[in-house]
Design a protein around this nucleic acid. Structure first.
Lengths: 188, 188
DNA sequence: CCGGGCACTTGATCTGTATCAAGAACGTCT
DNA sequence: AGACGTTCTTGATACAGATCAAGTGCCCGG
């Protein structure tokens, strides 16, 4: 659970006493490749930090999968939309590689928010960061053509190409696998 | 400023003492139609609540304007991206009609976050709500064709059609004014 | 270690929406 | 009130990327 403390303390400082209260609620969960972290229709009651592995979040429509993002490194994972709104999930979150996540129940998190103001602040800062990331993505979707979107991914997140199938990345970039494959051949 | 209190208290409760501290920092600002609330390149130091009027937020690229959203009712206004990240703004926010906004300086807001835990929580809840709204928009952009996007707008926000030019709405719906006009003629 | 099914590639064709163009109606500034 | 600029409409054409189709290779499970 040290990872949790480090992650939180990138935003706010916790005393040892506070941390010991926070720590008790986090648990480790294992998701083998292919397993679902969050499923459509189910209200997500847990928030996760990625300890190991990669997960993808996607929206299903007419049998098509539209990937909205990947979680890895020590970022957030799980369906934040369902978690924050406590409504039936609209997204699926699936382990793309064997994954280990550190999770906390929403009721426990709310209890911590009540008891430890720093945690409430942390919740705010995390979501603020999330929203800025989404704004960047929105700009890119809005203004870039398929080739430029591909180029940006290649030089900003080359590691993803190793870990995630081309069709999932294509979907994340809003293009078909065919288009992705052609760009791959074309661009250097 | 009563509006500010009502807006905040839709999320958290403030004592009269707390409110009197909060209240002093808010000021009223007038933006005649066409004026800019936030401008590209400038760091936004204020957050706003709309008292009157409509504003649009857009991204400029190659001389094209891509509208990301409108603010009205008693919602947020201003460039939240620049405000939250305190980086030079990527968006413009412009008054589409004569507008009256209630604003607060970031430094004052941070001071309130420090002094009044309920305000910190309010900040979190506001941003959580914002992100859920963006997720909904993202889903619609992802899965709906131009015609369906148009239909949804018409029956969810018909008032916008009265207040905002068709070209701005077209841009918000990610289509050209020509396509918008054709859909208008076609759909009922 | 074999076999079936994905993942990926490559080619041909299709299509929704953008782009270009031109005219009509509207609003607003002097 | 006149005139210009902007918004909206309508038509013709262009194009990026999707879709359809077929073939190759490779991974994983039995």
């Amino acid at each position: 659970m040290e990872l949790v403390r480090r992650t939180i303390e990138r935003y706010v400082k916790l005393s040892d006493v506070e941390w010991s209260e926070v720590a008790q609620y986090w648990t480790r969960a294992y998701f083998p490749k292919g397993d679902f972290v969050s499923k459509v229709g189910r209200v997500e009651t847990r928030a996760y930090i990625v300890e190991e592995g990669v997960q993808r979040m996607y929206y299903e429509h007419d049998g098509n999968e539209h990937c909205l993002g990947f979680a890895y490194g020590h970022s957030w994972s799980g369906d934040y939309d369902s978690f924050l709104g406590q409504r039936p999930g609209r997204f699926q979150v699936q382990a793309v590689t064997d994954s280990v996540l550190l999770g906390i129940e929403r009721t426990d998190l709310l209890r911590l928010y009540d008891r430890i103001p720093a945690m409430d602040r942390w919740g705010r800062l995390i979501v603020e960061e999330l929203i800025q990331g989404r704004a960047t993505r929105e700009i890119e979707q809005l203004t870039l053509g398929a080739e430029e979107r591909y180029r940006r991914l290649v030089d900003r997140s080359p590691h993803l190409l190793q870990l995630v199938s081309q069709k999932d990345i294509a979907s994340y970039l809003r293009m078909t696998p065919e288009t992705f494959s052609r760009l791959r051949a074309k661009v250097r």
